[in-house]
Design a binder for these strands. Structure first.
Length: 921
RNA sequence: GCCCAGAUGGCGGAAUUGGUAGACGCGCACGACUCAAACUCGUGUUCCUCUGGAGUGCGGGUUCGAUUCCCGCUCUGGGCACCA
């Protein structure tokens, strides 16, 4: 039997379609297993060999579990809303839906070419109205919910309204922003618009002012990395920090739950650590300082600090330039300076402000607070190292014990006081002493207490005087949810006299309207404002911003369970049956975005009673990146002459990327092909004029712009899908980054050929003990590897087994049938071809996994390495049953022992039964 | 700066709880088959001053024994970054 990949691939794939072998059943008596890949954004560039790495690994697990009798759900879909399609639409006028559809078609073809066993009958596309109808529905659920801190869970907004009408905000423990307050009587008096204004502070989806990078020229908000030096990355237009009324999601309410939930997840430590840091829980105190001469709400300056023990070292206050009370605290003579500073800060993006740790700037506001204990006046400054979005947007500066405060104090000549004593000599005038270990000094009633004691004592004292409270603070900020874009889910909100109102669920989906251009309107409204008729059924104007990319991807794993349900986002029975995702595979770049938001939505949907679990992904595996091996030619600067790499030192050259397909395995560039590659290279001359021109190689990220992309479907057409699958796995551990070297594929190709060549050796009789030993060692290894997704060693184990079988004169048909099943998860097309050749029925995909017989794993004898002082000198074969004493005497009796002892008497002999013997002496 | 992960032949990588370092594959070399090439098969392939010695990024330590554990560094990759 010969390896015929093209024929086998097509035939096997047709068979799978005919038998619908990858269809997940529901309802079912079998145990469910849900394996999921992070669904891709279908870009115009198509897939390169790096993308399917994770898909192949999850496919292997899915196929293995199917052989083990599980009802496997392994779906695939597309995260199809997004910026690139919109950008392309702006440039070409083509509707993003058209380009997206074309890209999806290409992706699906490429994925199918590799024989990935997805249940396409469950495919979802986030831009499909039947799908985003439910994304909008989830939005409304969150809009109509609040977070009860008392029960630590999301509840329906009605329970909040009941509380408000019974007791107002009194005794209300709710996650909110600002300081919403009212009495029951006031609530009763309010008109709908006033009520809504209050409720907005509690809803999980709400509108509030938040700071954004606004680009007036483009009429849009930009992400931090789209802003370079205060200008838009595209076009170079000015960008300003602007407070905008925007839809947000109250993820901060779930901070503690998201932190606690990490404990039980089988995720990598680094991802969990990243999430913990992102959530950023810190314990400390809020302290209110009385502002001298301040009136009303400007009478108190509230700060958050983790070090209330250093309160006696606070020599000035710093507030964020955007702080709403800044202007009220600015004196007449400081107004010009403060205004100029605030304007300057607004021009810098948050990222720039944060990246710039060297320069230190700030301006005095002209007012003072009173120190709560010493009664001394303390000046209030403003500086952009304090961020409005964290804590209270204000800090008490303790330059002796905080390096940023120290920097500002030094720059502005403000006093620096030491209030924590260190056991080692420190000079706080030179450098801040930040360690949390020491004893309080120069701090009145705190003197002599350790830092931890002093923190507690300071908080108690502040609390008893009504000046402060013990506080838990999270870094996690609420997520801005509105986008000034076209290609996203419309937000299902209508406005009645300016008051937002959720659409009725019956009105969903709220379809994306047609527009003449995918650009903002002349007066800066988002593209949806261009729609001709953008009103609700009742005739109310609709929201014009759309949802962000992460909306659709935050719950898609639920939809796969019940993708065509038109009465619920997922049927409760299906959700209960499939439950959490057993294995989730994807890139680690989604560590904080997608993985945090989808956890948040899942928690909320759980609380609101739609699903029975809180955490979406039980186990997460991050696949590493596959890098490309780029090729560079050396071209003489300003000329058209290319110099072979080994001679380039003698010239002043430029290193230029050339397409890797123009270069052979000896690193020689095909000169004619290079000239034909692009017009710019047509006239190229070469040095040396005769002989090979070599390129330089470098491992880089695989990308179109680096001309180092390798396409999996092209390789599959050439060598077969199984070869691509096996090689991707053989490359190395799944989580690791590693370079792609197509040359290495020949190893797995010859393995597949060898496997096929075993078939003519088959016999109908009983399998020999030797071939069964090989078989069961292989089963054992493969089963253990599946646990850790160590498929690189699985492939080598299969190679070892096939090499061993091939050395035998004949192989039993039963052994070959078992091998076909073992091979199937990795190389399903070849396995299917072998299965058919052996005359077996239906599909190998549906065959049960061979049962491991442990008796074939035990060996009769053990080959003991014999070491002398830790160095292995010879080997000694002993029966497996030999005791340590027997091994010891056998070693001593061995003829070579005397030679290696060189006359010494052994002091000690260590025998680890079944392992090793070591003679010490 | 902080956090996380990693460093093993020419290359990708393997090595149960500490127990023969370099499995498997690529590449390379030689040989067989062939008119020849491809394919296929076989042998060898960590290094060196080679009856021996050294060796898993570097320097120490624990141990009969360390790629594996501990301490101190260097480098690479990823993440976060004035978080009070």
């Amino acid at each position: 039997m010969e390896y015929r990949p093209t024929e086998w691939d097509a035939r096997a794939q047709q068979l799978w379609r005919d038998l619908a072998v990858y269809r997940a059943d529901f309802p079912s008596d079998r145990e469910p297993f849900y394996v999921l890949d992070m669904f891709p954004y279908p870009s115009g560039a198509g897939l390169h060999v790096g993308h399917p790495l994770g898909y192949i690994a999850s496919d292997i697990v899915g196929r293995f579990m199917r052989h083990k009798g599980f009802n496997v759900l392994h779906p695939m879909g597309f995260d199809a809303f997004g910026l690139p399609a919109e950008q392309y639409a702006i440039q070409t006028g083509q509707h993003p839906a058209a380009t997206t559809e074309a890209n999806i078609l290409r992706y699906r073809e490429q994925l199918n070419r590799l024989g990935l066993g997805f249940d396409w009958s469950r495919e979802v596309q986030t831009c499909d109205a039947d799908y985003y109808r439910w994304t909008q529905w989830v939005f409304l659920e969150l809009f109509n919910a609040w977070f009860n801190k008392g029960s630590a869970r999301a509840e329906r907004i009605e329970t909040l309204m009941e509380h408000l009408s019974a007791r107002g905000t009194e005794g209300l423990e709710a996650a909110c922003h600002g300081k919403p307050e009212c009495s029951a009587a006031e609530w009763a008096q309010m008109n709908p618009s006033e009520r809504e204004a209050l409720l907005q502070h509690f809803r999980l989806a709400y509108r509030s002012e938040s700071l954004v990078n606004w680009c007036p020229e483009l009429g849009t908000v930009l992400a931090n990395d789209e802003v370079v030096n205060g200008l838009s990355e595209r076009g170079g237009h000015p960008v300003v920090q602007k407070a905008m009324l925007q839809w947000s999601m109250r993820i901060s309410a779930f901070a503690q739950r998201l932190l606690d939930g990490l404990e039980d997840l089988n995720w990598s430590d680094s991802i969990k650590e990243t999430q913990r840091h992102w959530i950023g829980r810190s314990q400390g105190a809020r302290i209110a300082f009385k502002v001298l001469g301040g009136l009303g709400e400007a009478g108190l300056l509230e700060v958050f600090t983790t070090r209330p023990d250093t309160i006696f070292g606070a020599t000035f206050m710093v507030i964020a330039p955007e702080h709403p009370l800044l202007s009220q605290w600015t004196s007449m003579d400081q107004k010009a300076d403060v205004d100029a500073y605030r304007e300057r800060a607004a021009r810098r993006s948050e990222r720039e402000r944060q990246a710039d740790t060297k320069s230190c700037s700030g301006v005095f506001t002209g007012s003072y607070v009173e120190h709560p204990f010493t009664r001394e006046p303390i000046p209030i400054w403003t500086s952009d190292y304090v961020l409005l979005g964290y804590g209270t947007g204000a800090v008490m500066a303790v330059p002796g014990h905080d390096s940023r405060d120290h920097a500002l104090a030094k720059a502005m000549g403000l006093p620096i006081v030491q209030v924590v004593a260190s056991t080692e000599p420190v000079d706080v005038q030179q450098e801040a002493f930040e360690a949390k270990s020491g004893r309080a000094m120069a701090s009145d009633f705190l003197n002599g207490l350790s830092t931890l004691e002093a923190i507690d004592r300071a908080i108690e004292e502040l609390q008893s005087r009504g000046l402060g409270t013990r506080t838990l603070q999270f870094r996690l900020r609420d997520a801005v949810f509105g986008r000034q874009r076209y290609w996203g889910e419309p937000i299902p909100i209508a406005y009645r006299d300016g008051v937002p109102e959720g659409l009725d669920a019956a009105e969903l989906p709220l379809r994306l309207p047609a527009v003449d251009k995918y650009l903002p309107t002349a007066d800066g409204q988002p593209p949806l404002a261009r729609a001709e008729h953008w009103f609700s059924a009742e005739g109310l104007p609709l929201e014009t911003t759309t949802m962000p990319g992460w909306a659709g991807s935050s719950w898609y794993f639920l939809r796969y369970m019940d993708p065509r349900n038109d009465r619920a986002l997922v049927g409760r029975a299906a959700a209960d049956y499939w439950g959490q995702v057993d294995l989730y595979v994807g890139g680690s770049e989604h560590a904080t975005g997608h993985l945090l938001y989808s956890r948040f939505w899942t928690h909320a949907l759980h609380d609101l009673g739609h699903i029975g679990f809180k955490e979406p992904f039980k186990r997460l595996v991050n696949q590493g990146m596959i890098q490309g091996i780029s090729a560079f030619v050396h071209r003489i600067e300003g000329g058209k002459t290319v110099v072979s790499a080994e001679l380039a030192g003698g010239y002043s050259t430029q290193k230029l990327h050339v397409d890797v397909s123009l270069v052979n395995e000896r690193n020689e560039v095909d000169q004619d092909a290079l000239k034909a590659w692009m017009p710019d290279w047509a006239e190229t001359q070469f040095i040396p004029a005769q002989g090979p021109i070599r390129v330089e190689r470098e491992v880089e990220k695989m990308s179109k712009s680096k001309y180092n992309v390798v396409n999996p479907d092209a390789l599959a057409d050439q060598h077969g899908a199984d070869a691509v699958r096996l090689f991707e796995m053989f490359l190395g551990p799944i989580e690791q980054s590693k370079p792609w070297d197509t040359q290495g594929m020949s190893g797995v190709i010859s393995f597949l050929k060898k496997s096929a060549r075993m078939l003519p050796k088959r016999q109908r009789g009983k399998a020999s003990a030797e071939e069964l030993r090989i078989l069961h060692h292989l089963i054992d290894k493969l089963q253990r590897d599946v646990e850790t997704l160590s498929f690189n060693t699985s492939v080598s184990a299969m190679m070892i087994a096939v090499n061993a079988w091939s050395a035998l004169p004949e192989i039993a048909e039963s052994t070959l049938l078992d091998f076909a099943v073992l091979l199937e998860p990795f190389a399903p097309h070849s396995a299917e071809a072998m299965w058919a050749e052996l005359g077996a029925q239906r599909s190998v995909v549906l065959a049960p996994y061979p049962i491991l017989l442990p008796e074939y794993l035990v060996k009769d004898t053990v080959l003991y390495p014999v070491q002398f002082n830790g160095k292995t000198r010879f080997q000694l074969e002993m029966p497996s049953s030999a005791s340590a004493a027997e091994v010891e005497s056998a070693v001593l009796a061995h003829e070579r022992t005397a030679h290696f002892l060189e006359g010494r008497t052994p002091k000690k002999i260590i025998v680890v039964p079944g392992r090793i013997a070591n003679v010490v002496g």
